[in-house]
Simulated assay, not measured.
Amino acid sequence: MSLPKRTLTSLVAGLLLVPSMAVLAAGKCERLVVTGSPDAPPYMWRDPQDPKHLMGANADLLKEAATQMGVKIELLYAGKRSQALEEVRTGRMDLLADTPLNSNELESLDFIHPAITQNEIMVWTRTGHAQPFNSLADLHGHPGVISEKTRITPGFDLAVKEHLTLEKQPNLTQAFQKLMLGQAEFVLAGRYAGMALTQTLGMSKDLVSQPLPLDRPGLYLALSFNSACNEPWLRGQLAKKMTELAASGRSADAISRNLEVWKAQLQQPASAAVTQ
């Protein structure tokens, strides 16, 4: 039995419309509003020349990926880390650009795998420190310091709380000063932030990092469940670009480049560079 002419016409029109609707769905997100930590150089920090925006290695890598995807992004300062998280969790902003993987946030954020960058948490000691500090067990019983802004993985955090007594300082500068004064035997700090600060503060001959990192926290892109842009095409494209970045070595180049930028800012008295 043949279909009525009007029904057949409607069906054909509907089938012709499906590809165009799919294209619209795939390209509906043209702009992402992104935020992140204002105090995590060289990965991300507040631009001293343009305080409304953020800069850093993660910012550069995300801009590169977004350009290839045909998506515009704006990296905005949203306050301290907890405020940035809240802005994205509620959907007022779309994406966090440098967040550690946190199981507590899985109900509100889609974490994009793999990580956009990785940090290495090193043991920093005074030059000539006799005892090797190559493992968590080596640090047991020795006084140490960590900056409140240093982010570590949840598993390593639990191990540290169980086995070590660490004094927390507001930032890495003060943590290193404790080490220089002999008030601690070691500092747990990121490889690159430690390198920049010891060089800038004139401590590079006095403080060194031990050879082996104790922790490698990944920094992820995390898309809000409440973002209008949270749909399969965007998540898939971001995951594809992060996989390509991980295989290319461009992350290391971006980190090195931004490390030099941050060091230059620290050496400018009038700048608003943030110490970690």
Rank of each mutant, 00 (worst) to 15 (best):
S2V: 08
L3H: 01
T7G: 04
L11E: 08
V12I: 15
A13P: 01
V18G: 02
V18F: 01
S20T: 08
V23P: 10
V23L: 15
L24C: 13
C29N: 12
E30W: 00
V34C: 14
T35M: 11
P38D: 15
P38L: 11
D39P: 03
P41S: 04
P42S: 12
W45P: 13
R46H: 07
D47F: 02
P48K: 12
Q49I: 01
D50Q: 13
P51R: 13
H53V: 00
G56Q: 08
N58M: 05
D60F: 04
L62T: 10
L62V: 08
M69F: 04
K72Q: 15
K72S: 13
E74D: 14
L76F: 08
L76K: 14
V88M: 06
R89T: 02
G91I: 00
R92F: 00
D94S: 12
D94K: 14
L96R: 09
D98C: 03
L101D: 11
L101K: 09
N102P: 09
S103K: 10
N104V: 00
L109M: 04
F111N: 15
I112K: 05
H113V: 03
H113G: 04
H113P: 09
P114V: 01
A115C: 01
I116F: 14
N119T: 09
T125D: 03
A130K: 12
Q131L: 00
Q131I: 00
P132A: 06
S135Q: 04
L136T: 09
A137L: 01
D138H: 09
L139R: 08
H140Q: 14
G141W: 03
G144H: 06
V145C: 13
S147Q: 06
T150A: 08
I152P: 06
I152C: 09
T153L: 07
L158G: 04
L158F: 04
A159H: 13
E162G: 03
H163Y: 09
H163N: 10
L164F: 11
L164G: 11
L164Q: 12
L166A: 05
E167M: 00
Q174I: 10
Q177G: 13
L181F: 08
L181T: 07
Q183P: 01
Q183V: 04
A189D: 15
A189I: 11
Y192D: 09
M195G: 07
T198G: 05
T200Y: 07
T200I: 10
T200D: 12
G202W: 14
S204T: 10
S209Y: 03
Q210Y: 05
P211F: 06
L219N: 13
L221W: 05
A222L: 13
A222M: 13
L223K: 07
F225Y: 04
N226S: 10
S227K: 00
E231P: 14
E231I: 08
W233P: 06
L234I: 04
G236A: 01
L238K: 15
A239Y: 02
K240T: 04
M242H: 15
E244F: 03
A247Q: 10
D253P: 03
I255M: 03
S256W: 05
R257V: 00
N258E: 15
N258K: 15
L259P: 02
E260R: 15
V261P: 01
K263C: 00
A264I: 09
L266P: 05
Q267A: 02
Q268P: 14
V274S: 11
